[in-house]
Protein backbone atom coordinates (compact mmCIF):
# COMPACT_ATOMS: atom_id res chain seq x y z
CA UNK A 1 0.00 0.00 0.00
CA UNK A 2 2.56 2.57 1.17
CA UNK A 3 6.29 2.41 0.73
CA UNK A 4 8.52 5.17 2.03
CA UNK A 5 12.15 4.84 1.04
CA UNK A 6 14.99 6.86 2.56
CA UNK A 7 12.85 9.99 2.79
CA UNK A 8 14.62 13.24 3.60
CA UNK A 9 12.74 16.52 3.98
CA UNK A 10 13.59 19.98 5.19
CA UNK A 11 11.87 23.25 5.81
CA UNK A 12 13.76 26.51 5.30
CA UNK A 13 17.06 24.65 5.39
CA UNK A 14 16.30 22.75 8.61
CA UNK A 15 16.53 19.02 8.09
CA UNK A 16 13.47 17.43 9.66
CA UNK A 17 13.21 13.98 8.09
CA UNK A 18 16.55 12.21 7.81
CA UNK A 19 15.95 8.95 6.03
CA UNK A 20 12.56 7.47 6.82
CA UNK A 21 11.91 3.90 5.69
CA UNK A 22 8.42 2.55 6.22
CA UNK A 23 6.26 -0.05 4.51
CA UNK A 24 2.57 -0.45 5.28
CA UNK A 25 0.65 -3.39 3.78
CA UNK A 26 -3.10 -3.41 3.08
CA UNK A 27 -5.18 -3.82 6.21
CA UNK A 28 -2.34 -2.99 8.60
CA UNK A 29 -2.48 -0.44 11.36
CA UNK A 30 0.82 1.23 12.12
CA UNK A 31 1.48 3.63 14.96
CA UNK A 32 4.26 6.19 15.06
CA UNK A 33 5.22 7.47 18.46
CA UNK A 34 7.96 9.81 19.51
CA UNK A 35 8.76 12.93 21.49
CA UNK A 36 7.89 16.45 20.35
CA UNK A 37 9.86 17.69 17.38
CA UNK A 38 10.84 14.26 16.14
CA UNK A 39 9.21 14.90 12.75
CA UNK A 40 5.97 12.93 13.10
CA UNK A 41 3.68 15.68 11.92
CA UNK A 42 6.11 16.64 9.16
CA UNK A 43 5.90 13.09 7.84
CA UNK A 44 2.10 13.32 7.75
CA UNK A 45 2.20 16.69 5.94
CA UNK A 46 4.78 15.44 3.45
CA UNK A 47 2.55 12.45 2.69
CA UNK A 48 -0.45 14.74 2.13
CA UNK A 49 1.60 17.13 0.01
CA UNK A 50 1.82 20.35 2.02
CA UNK A 51 3.99 22.73 0.05
CA UNK A 52 6.13 24.10 2.89
CA UNK A 53 8.52 21.14 2.79
CA UNK A 54 11.35 20.40 0.43
CA UNK A 55 12.01 16.76 -0.30
CA UNK A 56 15.75 16.38 -0.76
CA UNK A 57 16.03 12.61 -1.08
CA UNK A 58 14.00 9.43 -1.22
CA UNK A 59 10.63 8.40 -2.57
CA UNK A 60 7.10 7.57 -1.55
CA UNK A 61 5.08 4.97 -3.41
CA UNK A 62 1.35 4.64 -2.84
CA UNK A 63 -0.04 1.55 -4.51
CA UNK A 64 2.94 1.73 -6.83
CA UNK A 65 2.42 5.38 -7.79
CA UNK A 66 4.99 8.08 -7.13
CA UNK A 67 3.25 10.25 -4.56
CA UNK A 68 5.79 13.07 -4.72
CA UNK A 69 4.78 13.80 -8.29
CA UNK A 70 1.08 14.08 -7.44
CA UNK A 71 -0.85 17.24 -6.57
CA UNK A 72 -2.38 17.47 -3.10
CA UNK A 73 -5.88 16.81 -4.42
CA UNK A 74 -4.68 13.96 -6.65
CA UNK A 75 -3.27 12.22 -3.59
CA UNK A 76 -6.62 12.61 -1.84
CA UNK A 77 -8.51 11.23 -4.83
CA UNK A 78 -6.06 8.30 -4.96
CA UNK A 79 -7.17 7.43 -1.43
CA UNK A 80 -4.76 9.14 0.91
CA UNK A 81 -6.44 10.93 3.81
CA UNK A 82 -4.85 13.01 6.55
CA UNK A 83 -6.94 13.66 9.65
CA UNK A 84 -5.34 16.86 10.83
CA UNK A 85 -4.07 17.65 14.27
CA UNK A 86 -5.51 21.15 14.04
CA UNK A 87 -8.51 21.12 11.68
CA UNK A 88 -8.81 24.55 10.15
CA UNK A 89 -11.82 26.85 10.48
CA UNK A 90 -13.15 28.18 7.19
CA UNK A 91 -15.79 30.88 7.68
CA UNK A 92 -18.13 31.25 4.73
CA UNK A 93 -17.93 27.60 3.61
CA UNK A 94 -20.79 25.55 5.03
CA UNK A 95 -19.66 22.17 6.36
CA UNK A 96 -22.26 20.34 4.25
CA UNK A 97 -21.24 22.15 1.06
CA UNK A 98 -17.62 21.33 1.79
CA UNK A 99 -18.35 17.63 2.35
CA UNK A 100 -20.35 17.37 -0.84
CA UNK A 101 -17.79 19.27 -2.91
CA UNK A 102 -14.94 17.13 -1.59
CA UNK A 103 -16.72 13.82 -2.14
CA UNK A 104 -17.84 14.72 -5.64
CA UNK A 105 -14.44 16.15 -6.59
CA UNK A 106 -12.83 12.83 -5.63
CA UNK A 107 -15.49 10.79 -7.38
CA UNK A 108 -15.15 12.82 -10.56
CA UNK A 109 -11.35 12.57 -10.41
CA UNK A 110 -11.73 8.78 -10.20
CA UNK A 111 -14.22 8.75 -13.05
CA UNK A 112 -17.10 7.63 -10.82
CA UNK A 113 -19.46 10.55 -11.47
CA UNK A 114 -21.07 12.80 -8.87
CA UNK A 115 -23.30 11.42 -6.16
CA UNK A 116 -26.87 12.70 -6.40
CA UNK A 117 -27.92 15.05 -3.61
CA UNK A 118 -30.50 12.71 -1.98
CA UNK A 119 -27.97 9.84 -1.94
CA UNK A 120 -25.33 12.13 -0.51
CA UNK A 121 -27.69 13.42 2.19
CA UNK A 122 -28.61 9.90 3.18
CA UNK A 123 -25.00 8.89 3.50
CA UNK A 124 -24.01 11.95 5.52
CA UNK A 125 -26.97 11.50 7.84
CA UNK A 126 -26.08 7.90 8.60
CA UNK A 127 -22.42 8.59 9.23
CA UNK A 128 -22.89 11.80 11.19
CA UNK A 129 -25.35 10.12 13.57
CA UNK A 130 -22.75 7.51 14.44
CA UNK A 131 -20.12 10.15 15.12
CA UNK A 132 -22.44 12.40 17.08
CA UNK A 133 -22.09 15.17 14.49
CA UNK A 134 -25.32 17.16 14.75
CA UNK A 135 -27.34 18.66 11.89
CA UNK A 136 -26.42 22.03 13.27
CA UNK A 137 -22.72 21.24 12.92
CA UNK A 138 -23.33 20.28 9.31
CA UNK A 139 -25.05 23.57 8.61
CA UNK A 140 -22.42 25.72 10.28
CA UNK A 141 -19.36 27.06 8.47
CA UNK A 142 -16.61 24.44 8.39
CA UNK A 143 -15.20 23.92 11.91
CA UNK A 144 -16.12 27.49 12.91
CA UNK A 145 -16.98 27.62 16.58
CA UNK A 146 -16.50 23.84 16.90
CA UNK A 147 -14.98 22.57 20.14
CA UNK A 148 -11.78 20.52 19.95
CA UNK A 149 -13.79 17.32 20.14
CA UNK A 150 -16.27 18.47 17.51
CA UNK A 151 -13.46 19.30 15.11
CA UNK A 152 -11.94 15.85 15.52
CA UNK A 153 -15.31 14.13 15.08
CA UNK A 154 -15.80 16.18 11.93
CA UNK A 155 -12.41 14.96 10.67
CA UNK A 156 -13.48 11.37 11.19
CA UNK A 157 -16.79 12.09 9.48
CA UNK A 158 -14.87 13.29 6.42
CA UNK A 159 -12.75 10.16 6.56
CA UNK A 160 -15.80 7.91 6.79
CA UNK A 161 -17.48 9.71 3.92
CA UNK A 162 -14.46 9.76 1.61
CA UNK A 163 -13.55 6.10 2.31
CA UNK A 164 -9.80 6.48 1.76
CA UNK A 165 -7.39 3.59 1.30
CA UNK A 166 -4.84 4.99 3.73
CA UNK A 167 -5.93 6.96 6.80
CA UNK A 168 -3.25 9.05 8.47
CA UNK A 169 -4.34 10.22 11.90
CA UNK A 170 -2.13 13.04 13.16
CA UNK A 171 -2.50 13.26 16.94
CA UNK A 172 -6.21 12.75 16.65
CA UNK A 173 -6.29 12.17 20.41
CA UNK A 174 -4.92 15.60 21.33
CA UNK A 175 -7.48 17.75 23.07
CA UNK A 176 -10.01 14.94 23.48
CA UNK A 177 -11.59 13.86 26.74
CA UNK A 178 -12.27 10.18 27.42
CA UNK A 179 -15.81 10.21 25.94
CA UNK A 180 -14.74 12.01 22.79
CA UNK A 181 -11.77 9.71 22.45
CA UNK A 182 -14.10 6.71 22.59
CA UNK A 183 -16.45 8.12 19.92
CA UNK A 184 -13.57 9.02 17.64
CA UNK A 185 -11.90 5.64 18.10
CA UNK A 186 -15.12 3.77 17.42
CA UNK A 187 -15.47 5.82 14.26
CA UNK A 188 -11.97 4.88 13.19
CA UNK A 189 -12.41 1.22 14.09
CA UNK A 190 -15.60 1.06 12.05
CA UNK A 191 -13.43 1.85 9.02
CA UNK A 192 -11.04 -1.03 9.58
CA UNK A 193 -10.96 -3.36 6.60
CA UNK A 194 -8.52 -5.73 4.91
CA UNK A 195 -8.15 -3.20 2.06
CA UNK A 196 -7.65 -0.14 4.23
CA UNK A 197 -4.46 0.76 6.09
CA UNK A 198 -3.93 3.25 8.87
CA UNK A 199 -1.04 5.27 10.16
CA UNK A 200 -1.70 6.56 13.64
CA UNK A 201 0.58 9.30 14.94
CA UNK A 202 0.42 9.91 18.65
CA UNK A 203 2.37 10.96 21.71
CA UNK A 204 0.52 8.72 24.07
CA UNK A 205 -0.25 5.06 24.34
CA UNK A 206 -3.81 5.84 25.48
CA UNK A 207 -5.24 6.10 21.94
CA UNK A 208 -3.70 2.75 21.08
CA UNK A 209 -5.87 1.07 23.73
CA UNK A 210 -8.77 1.91 21.44
CA UNK A 211 -7.15 1.66 18.03
CA UNK A 212 -4.93 -1.37 18.38
CA UNK A 213 -1.88 -1.25 16.09
CA UNK A 214 -0.21 -4.17 14.34
CA UNK A 215 3.14 -2.37 14.25
CA UNK A 216 4.56 0.40 16.44
CA UNK A 217 7.45 2.63 15.37
CA UNK A 218 9.44 5.06 17.43
CA UNK A 219 10.52 8.19 15.62
CA UNK A 220 13.29 10.42 16.84
CA UNK A 221 15.18 13.22 15.09
CA UNK A 222 13.65 12.41 11.75
CA UNK A 223 14.34 8.69 11.73
CA UNK A 224 12.55 5.54 12.78
CA UNK A 225 14.75 4.29 15.56
CA UNK A 226 12.81 1.24 16.73
CA UNK A 227 9.99 -0.94 15.45
CA UNK A 228 7.99 -3.51 17.36
CA UNK A 229 4.50 -4.81 18.03
CA UNK A 230 1.88 -3.23 20.23
CA UNK A 231 3.82 -4.09 23.38
CA UNK A 232 6.38 -1.48 22.35
CA UNK A 233 3.78 1.19 22.99
CA UNK A 234 3.19 -0.11 26.50
CA UNK A 235 6.90 -0.17 27.10
CA UNK A 236 7.23 3.46 26.00
CA UNK A 237 4.36 4.45 28.25
CA UNK A 238 6.27 2.98 31.17
CA UNK A 239 9.81 4.08 30.39
CA UNK A 240 9.33 7.20 28.31
CA UNK A 241 11.60 8.15 25.40
CA UNK A 242 14.79 8.51 27.47
CA UNK A 243 16.27 5.38 25.96
CA UNK A 244 16.21 6.97 22.51
CA UNK A 245 16.86 10.58 23.35
CA UNK A 246 19.83 9.52 25.53
CA UNK A 247 21.15 7.06 22.96
CA UNK A 248 20.98 9.26 19.91
CA UNK A 249 22.10 12.42 21.66
CA UNK A 250 25.17 10.70 23.16
Amino acid sequence: MLEIKNLHAEVEGNKILRGINLTINPGEIHAIMGPNGSGKSTLSYVLAGKEDYEITEGEILFNGENVLEMEIDERAAAGLFLAMQYPIEIPGVANMTFLKTALNAQRVARGEGELKTPDFMKKVKELSAKLNVTQEMLRRPLNVGFSGGEKKRNEILQMALLEPKLCILDETDSGLDIDALRIVSEGVNALKSPERSMLVITHYQRLLNYIVPDVVHVMYKGQIVKTGDKSLALELEEKGYAEFTGEVAA
Binding site: K50, E51, A76, A77, L82, F98, A105
Partner: peptide, 11 residues
Protein backbone atom coordinates in the same frame (compact mmCIF):
# COMPACT_ATOMS: atom_id res chain seq x y z
CA UNK B 1 -6.16 26.03 0.53
CA UNK B 2 -4.19 23.04 1.77
CA UNK B 3 -7.08 21.84 3.91
CA UNK B 4 -9.53 21.93 1.01
CA UNK B 5 -7.09 20.36 -1.43
CA UNK B 6 -6.19 17.62 1.05
CA UNK B 7 -9.83 16.57 0.79
CA UNK B 8 -9.59 16.19 -2.97
CA UNK B 9 -10.74 19.61 -4.11
CA UNK B 10 -8.68 20.99 -7.01
CA UNK B 11 -6.59 24.11 -6.51
Amino acid sequence: LFYLRARGISK
